[in-house]
Amino acid sequence: MSDAAAIAAGPPKRRSQPRGAAVGQMFEALCFAAATFLLVALGGLIASLVVGGWPAIHKFGLGFLTSTTWNPVTDVYGAAGPIVGTLVTSALALLIALPIAGGVAFFLTELCPGPLRRPVGTAVELLAGVPSIVYGMWGLFTFAPLFSRWVQLPLMSAAKPGSLLESLTAGVPNGTGILAASIILAVMILPFIAATLRELLLTVPAAVRESAYGLGATTAEVVLKVTLPYVRTGAIGAVMLGLGRALGETMAVTFIIGNSHGFPKSLFDSGSTIASTIANEFAEATTEMHTAALIYLGLVLFVITFSVLGLARLMLRRQVSRL
């Protein structure tokens, strides 16, 4: 084409967007779709819990949270027993698991001899993958007799009548109960927290640790005052996720907690958790009020887990703002 003809034709036609832009936009749209799907599903879940539990919410209101009666014959339900059981077992499990998980993580990153590092690390990750029902069966058939023989019976015989120890250890010494369930839960969430903490500790730059050692700090001081604050936000997140898992755990707890609906009166007493109550009774609940009460219970658990995660976020925000 001659120059004059080219000038007369005007500026060359340009694409409005670079080649391949359509694919990028399609990708963004799909991501948007996925996010919408998730949010709508979450909203739908909350809505269906409220709608399903409405007969119970209407009948019992907030008194549901403080009443201990659970009577399917007269259709009167109260969630105080399961709620207390859930909170106590999860708190105890975290109390037991956290120091041990921290110890495992620190051992693997600071103290472990080189050749042992990979096998132990893999073993911890494998334990995290064991299904919870296997823990439940192991708990009932292996752990419970040992627990009853070596912990419950000695403590119960050593307790003087009328002492605090006696009231804490009252109950049936057959290896079941609140404390036994908490220990099984602790064993369950321990590998998860340990593996996550180990990953976090590995992100600490060598320079930070080495400079602490260089200043003359002992291993314990390096661990507690340097590496741990460095990974503080991630560690809190890991702990909260472990707690969230413990709150919702069903099968491991059902086998060993003893499943009685009242308020647990001692560490060896049987109790129940929200998840174990729903798992036990939902399939057979034929009356509308029974099913609605169980769904209301599910809503309560949802709110508890939500508040735990919200609390974790609050703590993280405070940490970050302090830095």
Binding site: G258, S260, S270, S272
Partner: peptide
């Protein structure tokens, strides 16, 4: 006190699944 049903409010004891 307790009544009869496939699920009742047991006065005492532990529950097995």
């Amino acid at each position: 006190e307790v009544g009869a049903n496939d699920s009742v409010s047991w006065p005492t004891g532990q529950g097995g699944k």
